[in-house]
Each structure stands twice: as structure tokens, then as C-alpha cells.
Deep mutational scan, measured.
Amino acid sequence: MTEYKLVVVGAGGVGKSALTIQLIQNHFVDEYDPTIEDSYRKQVVIDGETCLLDILDTAGQEEYSAMRDQYMRTGEGFLCVFAINNTKSFEDIHHYREQIKRVKDSEDVPMVLVGNKCDLPSRTVDTKQAQDLARSYGIPFIETSAKTRQGVDDAFYTLVREIRKHKEKMSKDGKKKKKKSKTKCVIM
């Protein structure tokens, strides 16, 4: 069974824990209790493949930012979460993405942009803004509501699919490099 290491990042209060708990335990946590770091595991079937999701729910508070490099190193894919009623959390996505790329030393890291709290009427981040940002990053965008469960499975499952595509691409690139290195030079 394939294991996928997913990391949920975003500013404090955007609903990272609520999304994760909704996926794992099928219930909505409405009281806000700032996370330092929590880890969850769940076995699911995605596109006919049974897999184990190892999900790291991270601290959004700035005082825990020193811990970010460590979990970013171990993560295979990242859910970059903002709240649709919090423009600052949307603007912060850029910083999370840049930090992930720096730590992973790669421009090509599996990510999904997630606009959470889409059940709320007080939207300050337009869907088109988020779609445009995701398009500019070359990553999928999904709106979710941890409260109603809308888009929750889709967000995590899409990230797994992005990781699969990335692994497939990397193995193809690896095979191309191996083929090239088999060419021999004969000096007579």
C-alpha cells in the first residue's frame, strides 16, 4: 500500500485542523484551538488504489514558523489553505509557496490551493482571484467548507493525484537520464 505524506499549511484560523478532522473523523470542530502540530493517518481508496494518507496539520501562528522547514522537508505534497473571508490569509499563500519551493529546492512541488469556509456569506476573496492565482502557479484550486464537508475529500484526493503525477514524471525523467548515460565512448 502506497503511503502519501501530505502537509496542510496556511495562516492561523483558516480551518486547516477543521478540514483535516472532517476528512479523518467526519465531524466539524467549530471551536478554535490553535494547533502546534498534529499528525493523522487514514486509509482510503483513490482511483481504485488503496493508500495510506499521513497528514500533518501544522501551526499557522507566526511564533511556530521555525518548525516549518522541518515538516516541509518531509512532506510530499501540500494543501495551501486560505479562508475566503480573510484576504490576508490569501496573500500569505505566496509566502508559504515560496518557502516550500526553497526548502524542497524545487520549482515543481505537488500543491493544491484550497479556499476554505465557502459556506460563509462574508467572502472577501473572489473565486476568480483564487483561480487566477492557482493557474499562475500551475496547481489545482478547490473551494471547501469544513463545516458542510463540501470539497473536503476532493481537496485531499486531488493532492494525492498531483503527487502521483509528480512521481510518474520524475521516474520518466530518471529513465531518460539513465538511457543517456548508457551511451559509451570508444577510443581507438
Rank of each mutant, 00 (worst) to 15 (best):
M67E: 15
G77R: 00
G77K: 00
V125S: 12
L120Q: 10
E107N: 09
K117M: 15
R102L: 08
G77E: 01
L120A: 13
S122P: 09
L120H: 07
D105E: 13
E98F: 01
S65R: 06
P110H: 04
P110D: 02
R97T: 13
V103L: 15
V125I: 12
R68K: 09
Q99T: 09
V81K: 01
T87L: 07
S65F: 05
E98Y: 01
Y96G: 03
Q99L: 14
S122G: 14
Q99F: 14
N86M: 03
F82Y: 12
R73D: 12
K88L: 07
D108Q: 08
D119E: 10
Y96L: 15
V103G: 06
S65H: 05
A83S: 11
D69P: 07
E91L: 02
D108I: 05
N116T: 15
C118R: 04
G115I: 12
F90G: 05
C80L: 14
C118H: 06
I84P: 15
R97C: 15
R123S: 14
R68L: 06
T74R: 09
L120Y: 06
G77W: 00
M72F: 12
Y71K: 11
M72S: 07
T87E: 15
E98S: 06
D108Y: 07
M72V: 07
Y64M: 10
K117T: 10
P110Q: 03
F78Q: 00
T74Q: 14
D105C: 14
A83C: 04
D126W: 08
K104V: 09
E98M: 02
S122F: 08
D105A: 10
R68A: 13
T124S: 13
H95G: 04
S65W: 07
I84T: 15
M111P: 00
E76W: 14
P110E: 03
K104H: 11
T124W: 08
R102I: 05
V81A: 06
Q70Y: 04
D92F: 05
A83P: 14
D69L: 01
D105G: 15
V81D: 00
C80E: 03
K117G: 14
L79W: 01
R97P: 05
I100C: 02
F82G: 15
N86F: 02
P110R: 02
M67S: 14
S89G: 05
I84M: 15
M67K: 12
N116C: 15
G115D: 02
F82H: 08
R68W: 07
D92A: 14
D108S: 08
V103F: 12
Y71Q: 15
D126R: 06
N116M: 15
M111L: 06
E91V: 11
T74I: 08
A83F: 02
T87W: 05
H94P: 02
T124G: 12
R73Q: 12
P110L: 03
C118L: 08
G75E: 05
Y96E: 03
E98W: 05
D105R: 10
V103M: 10
F78P: 00
G77N: 00
V112G: 00
K101H: 04
D105S: 04
V114M: 09
R97F: 15
K117H: 14
E98L: 02
K101S: 06
L120K: 06
Y71E: 14
E63R: 06
I84C: 15
D108F: 10
M111G: 01
Y64I: 12
E63C: 03
V125R: 09
I93V: 10
E107P: 06
V109W: 04
V114A: 03
Q99D: 00
Y71H: 10
P121I: 09
R73W: 07
G75L: 06
K104C: 11
E63W: 03
L120E: 14
Q99R: 08
T87V: 09
R97K: 07
V114L: 10
D105M: 01
G115L: 11
R68D: 14
F82A: 12
E76R: 05
Q70K: 13
A66Y: 10
T74P: 07
V81R: 00
R102N: 05
K117V: 14
G77A: 13
C118A: 10
V114P: 00
V103K: 05
F78I: 11
C80V: 14
Y71F: 12
D69M: 03
H95S: 05
N86I: 05
Y64H: 13
A83D: 15
R73E: 14
R123Y: 09
S65I: 07
Y96A: 04
R123T: 13
S122V: 10
H94F: 04
S122K: 09
C118G: 12
D69Q: 05
D105F: 02
M111W: 05
K104I: 06
I100P: 00
I100S: 00
E98K: 07
G75P: 08
C118M: 07
R68E: 14
S89Y: 01
P121H: 08
E107V: 12
A66Q: 10
E107S: 11
N86V: 01
K117R: 11
A66T: 10
V125W: 11
L113W: 06
V103T: 02
I84A: 15
E63Y: 02
I84S: 15
S122A: 11
S106E: 13
N86Q: 04
K101M: 13
R123I: 10
G75M: 08
I93R: 00
C118P: 04
C118E: 11
V114Y: 01
P110C: 04
K117N: 13
S65A: 08
L79N: 00
L79I: 12
T74W: 10
M67Y: 05
R102Q: 05
L113A: 03
D108T: 09
V125D: 12
Y71C: 08
Q70C: 09
R102V: 05
M111C: 06
I84F: 13
V112N: 01
E91R: 02
T74F: 09
F82C: 13
E107R: 06
R73L: 08
Q70H: 07
V125A: 12
R97D: 02
D108N: 10
F90W: 13
R123E: 14
V109L: 04
I100F: 06
Q99W: 15
H94S: 08
K104D: 01
D92L: 05
V114E: 00
A83E: 15
G115Y: 05
R102S: 12
V109H: 06
M111S: 01
P110M: 03
K88C: 09
P121N: 10
N116K: 01
E107T: 08
N86W: 05
L79K: 00
T87F: 06
C118S: 11
